[in-house]
């Protein structure tokens, strides 16, 4: 490992070998097992959410109603949520509804959870996509420059800058942007991104700029460092050295050998960042009052809107599982050594 990526140790090491399983059991193709594993994780996640929200509080109804809990109201709510039945039965019921696409009704305004969730989710996805579409090429570019000019002033500059931004909490980045571009210094963009959630985020591009920018600043540092580290590993490898001694043109070495081989960590890193976006976005959306999932979750939590909390949390966790699944499949496509195993 070279210097910088040790700082990224947690994330780099989370890169698991998707086909680590024993080579003997070849009856089931590895990708079927991997997808099965994904579902298993989701199942466990749903239990955890269920426990955290419906069982753990002791009396969810009481914690929902808070101070204005009267015995009648409590009883009614318990009945509505099915809290007076055994926990297992509650869970099975809840899970069955989820699988069939019935997410229940919001406790706050009695609208269906689905109706609330879907447009907000679309906005969040739009925001995340904007961020990743900018951050990924930017990171590959800056990371490559850093690796190529290793230990030079440019590399040092990029390294310290990315280290700083990597450490900054998202809300600090968000507020910083507000100060710079929306209030005191320059008043170019709106400080808040309020628009009706039903509208598409893309029809309010101005509202998208600052939150997307904040997300780019939040995720790029990590990706830059990742690209730099894995590209340096590749450039220091024996196969790059021997390619040089074979007289292969330097450009070809960089693109065909080094970049190609350093893509695996980058794919995993991008997946991890997408999953991370699901969390970081909560804070960024709150800073900009952006009508997305994060905002929805915080609203739901403030109102103790149980079905809405459960659905949102499950959705965010599902994003993690799915994105990681896709990354694993992609990595196997990119790595010939893994392709053969179990196939």
């Amino acid at each position: 490992m070279t210097s910088a990526e040790s700082g990224l140790s947690e994330r780099t090491n989370s890169i698991s070998n998707p086909v680590e399983g024993s080579p003997r059991r070849r009856v089931v193709p590895w990708w079927v097992r991997r997808i099965g594993g994904g579902f298993l994780t989701l199942f466990a996640v749903s239990i955890l959410i269920f426990l955290a929200t419906q069982v753990l509080p002791g009396d969810a109804a009481k914690s929902i109603l808070g101070r204005d809990a009267t015995p009648e109201k409590l009883e009614a709510l318990r009945a509505q949520l099915g809290l007076n039945r055994p926990a297992l039965e509650q869970y099975l019921d809840w899970a069955r509804n989820f699988v069939t696409g019935d997410f229940g009704l919001s406790l706050v305004n009695n609208r269906s959870v689905e109706e609330l969730l879907v447009p907000r989710a679309m906005n969040t996805i739009a925001l995340a996509l904007c961020a990743i579409v900018i951050a990924l090429p930017l990171s590959i570019l800056l990371g490559s420059i850093s690796a190529a000019r290793r230990d030079g002033p440019l590399d040092q500059g990029i390294s310290v800058t990315s280290l700083t931004f990597n450490a900054l909490p998202e809300f600090v980045i968000g507020l910083g942007l507000v100060v710079l571009f929306a209030t005191s210094v320059m008043k170019i963009f709106p400080a808040v991104s309020i628009f009706p959630p039903e509208e598409s985020a893309f029809s309010n591009p101005a509202a998208l700029v600052l939150p997307a920018f904040a997300l780019v600043l939040a995720i790029s540092p990590y990706l830059i460092r990742l690209v730099r580290a894995s590209l340096i590993d590749a450039l220091d490898s024996e196969y790059v050295l021997t390619a040089r001694l074979r007289g292969i043109p330097e450009r070809r070495i960089l693109v065909n050998h080094a970049l190609r081989n350093s893509m695996v960590p980058v794919v995993h890193g991008t997946a991890l960042m997408l999953a991370y976006l699901a969390g970081g976005i909560v804070v960024i959306e709150y800073v900009f009052r952006f009508p997305g999932l994060g905002g929805l979750l915080l609203e739901a939590v403030s109102a103790r809107d149980l079905p809405l909390i459960q659905a949102t949390a499950l959705f965010l966790a599902a994003v993690y599982v799915v994105v990681n699944l896709i990354a694993d499949l992609l990595v196997v496509r990119l790595t010939p050594r893994l392709r053969g195993v179990g196939a």
């Binding site: 007289g247 190609r260 010939p336």
Partner: peptide, 18 residues
């Protein structure tokens, strides 16, 4: 590679795995 070429010690590392 054209005038003078090189055979490395460890072929497993010297060939690009991809």
């Amino acid at each position: 590679g054209r005038v003078i070429s090189y055979v490395p010690q460890d072929p497993a590392a010297a060939l690009d795995p991809c």
